[in-house]
């Protein structure tokens, strides 16, 4: 690892000022678990890291507003999300996902904001939060804006965040009777980076699927919404044949890449299977309630 300057702003505004530059070697650092690995392997050589650690006090709150929206501060650690009773009650999928997301030490350090802003398509939280219709609240030199997590990624390790913009918090809407599932396929250990992540959220009414969200990640260059599969499901009765068709359509529409976690051909086959299973699982959850 090469030397660099490490600065620790005390406020979000100061951090934004420090990051308001065109220099790509100036980057924010939150939990550091992902960026440290990029620095150690020489993929990323910062000139200056803006540590957000001093902002943890003001930006790690988990709150619920009177309309049932869950707000999670960007500096909240994954461990805090995992053990939060409020999260368990209002977004039970999140603590469940944590069990197989890296390990206890990584979850103790890694933050929700970092997991979203890093832009690595292998991250587990982006498809999960996208399926939950979550939005990030980004704060930048020009003020604040809300970005759906579904629209956060422009490409491989690339977000739509503008110069100087930092994710300040994440807002998760109420579930409204929907059931959500994340299916993670790893090809090494259970808690490894996924070869494929599939997240879905389903809501039924009058015997048909009314609310359908379906996302794939890890096997793709960036988190991808499976729009054709969603359209095939929406408005129809959730029968086994329909779910299987949705899996096949998803496998056709998704652009899968080869990497150390498996070949593209293998992962295309996985998409069809895991989409079908995720849909079944979500429906089963719904019928148990």
């Amino acid at each position: 690892m090469r030397g660099f300057e490490l600065v620790r702003p005390a406020t979000l505004e100061e951090a934004i000022r420090l990051l308001d530059t065109d220099d790509p070697t100036v980057r924010p650092l939150s939990g550091g678990t992902a960026i440290m690995q990029m620095m150690k392997t020489g993929i990323f050589k910062p000139s200056r890291l803006v540590s957000l650690s001093s902002l943890a006090g003001d930006h790690s709150a988990i709150t619920l507003d009177d309309k049932g929206f869950l707000s999670i501060g960007a500096m909240t650690t994954l461990a805090a999300v995992e053990h939060s009773q409020v999260v368990l009650q209002h977004a039970p999928l999140l603590p469940k996902v944590m069990k197989r997301l890296a390990n206890v030490r990584v979850r103790n350090a890694a933050t929700v904001g970092g997991a979203l802003a890093h832009g690595d398509p292998h991250m587990d939280l982006p498809p999960v939060l996208a399926a939950l219709d979550a939005e990030v609240i980004a704060q930048g030199p020009g003020g604040q804006r809300r970005i759906p997590v579904a629209d956060l990624y422009a490409g491989y390790f690339e977000t739509v965040l503008q110069r100087g913009e930092i994710i300040a918090s994440v807002s998760v809407p109420p579930r409204n009777g929907c059931n959500s599932v994340y299916r993670k396929t790893t090809t090494r250990t259970a808690d490894d980076w996924p070869a494929l992540g599939v997240a879905t959220s389903l809501g039924r009414g009058e015997g048909v699927l009314q609310h359908v969200r379906l996302f794939a990640s890890a096997a793709t260059e960036r988190m991808t919404r499976l729009g054709s599969a969603e359209a095939h499901l929406r408005g129809n009765r959730p029968e086994a044949k329909l779910l299987e068709e949705a899996g096949r359509i998803a496998a056709q529409e998704v652009e899968v890449i080869d990497d150390a976690h498996g070949s593209a051909a293998y992962k295309v086959a996985l998409v069809a299977v895991q989409v079908r299973r995720a849909l079944h699982e979500a429906l089963q959850q719904g019928s148990e309630q």
């Binding site: 620790r8 550091g32 678990t33 440290m36 990584v106 103790n108 350090a109």
Partner: peptide, 11 residues
């Protein structure tokens, strides 16, 4: 508990 190898010492 954290991984010392992923923690910048200055922090």
């Amino acid at each position: 508990a954290v991984s010392g190898c992923l923690t910048l010492a200055q922090l």
